[in-house]
Design a protein around this nucleic acid. Sequence first.
DNA 1: GAGTGGTCTAGACCACATC
DNA 2: ATGTGGTCTAGACCACTCT
Lengths: 234, 234
Amino acid sequence: MPKYKEIADEIRSKILNNEYERGQKLPYEYMLCVTYHCNKETMKKALEILVKEGYIIRRRGSGTFVKDNNPAELDTIINSRSLTSRHRHDHIDTKVVTFEVIPCNAFLAEKLHIDKGDFVYHVVRYRKINSQPYVVSVTYIPLSLIPNLKLETLKHSFYEFITNKMKMKIQSTQITITAHQPNEEERSFLELKENEPYIQEACVSYLTDGHVLEYSMDRINYRNYEFKTNIINQ
Amino acid sequence: MPKYKEIADEIRSKILNNEYERGQKLPYEYMLCVTYHCNKETMKKALEILVKEGYIIRRRGSGTFVKDNNPAELDTIINSRSLTSRHRHDHIDTKVVTFEVIPCNAFLAEKLHIDKGDFVYHVVRYRKINSQPYVVSVTYIPLSLIPNLKLETLKHSFYEFITNKMKMKIQSTQITITAHQPNEEERSFLELKENEPYIQEACVSYLTDGHVLEYSMDRINYRNYEFKTNIINQ
DNA sequence: GAGTGGTCTAGACCACATC
DNA sequence: ATGTGGTCTAGACCACTCT
């Protein structure tokens, strides 16, 4: 793990533990460099991570300040740090209702960066968390990437399988949030009333080797939905 | 404008103009440094911007590649580059239905980083785009930041006013997306049927001087809602 | 003017991918 | 072994804020 990430982790946990308090001014850059034994540019990289995560704010001429925010709330923001932990829901109460191999259409070919007609897994899963219906998950995965996908894997954690068994790494994910009317099965599982839509998170996941791992649509009862992110102006 | 942003802009537009094609490998780092007359670290900063925006992918040992994506679609991703342009809707068909000054409650005090009881503007606006109902916008702004806010300003672009007249700069925005049932007025304006929720984007906008400019809730008919973002794994 | 961040460079050295 | 990106450093110089 690079030094700048270690330093970011240290400072982040100091903020979360209130060693650096809300609204407080941090020591200035050179002082931090001395404390954490690094060069100015390295410290800048570390602090930049925390800026992007919304923990601190830097002002030329004034200094670096801890954002006057509820730290617990900050920790729920979706960013590079939390993407992995989002996948950790994967083990809970999964019912696989569809598991088939089909030739993909033009839409999927575009998303998955493969040719129209190439075979893909088509998986539909109904998932509960703490016995409460949570998500209808529709996933398409190129067959060529994982020729030996098994039903058992889909019942447990697909993410674990990808990471630990296949030694693949997700590099980035494009997320698109929209809302739509469910079909009858979805409505019944998600316990939606007449006219109520689900929120859909459509994800395209890229591996570090450049391949697209999957195109997935997670459909969630809007009552349970929350998405937080932090956008920094350039 | 720093050199690394200029270089990022140049390379981004080459990608958008297909001078660097989808899926193509870019010249390697040192070559790019020669082409754009800069140092390795500067080029790295430039390319990092494009990685975050989802235009390119870098692989240690292999090279830098243009993502095999529809460039037009990439341009709709919400990130530092597009935050500003989102505010450009601000001029369209605005009806101000509430404009008052009230003492804030504990919830707002927390969001705006002011004391409970401090005065804030409370603004509710109904906005149409191309004569179509688009958003119910509820905004709270600390009175102390803008003591002279006028009704006229709210009918036009609040963002323009902040930027050009007040010379303020938005540094970052925390966005939280949820969905809720409307009240009667909201339902009627947004043309929602019985049981249909709106999607809410709650935003906390920070200025470069560290103050919170506003807490706003934009409530949108779910049929018209779309939010795209790109998340890079660390 | 003093304090503080931001940018840029030159160069050393490391880590990973591919052949 | 070679090609390619990633990290780290030392130091020069610039830009903004505050008082």
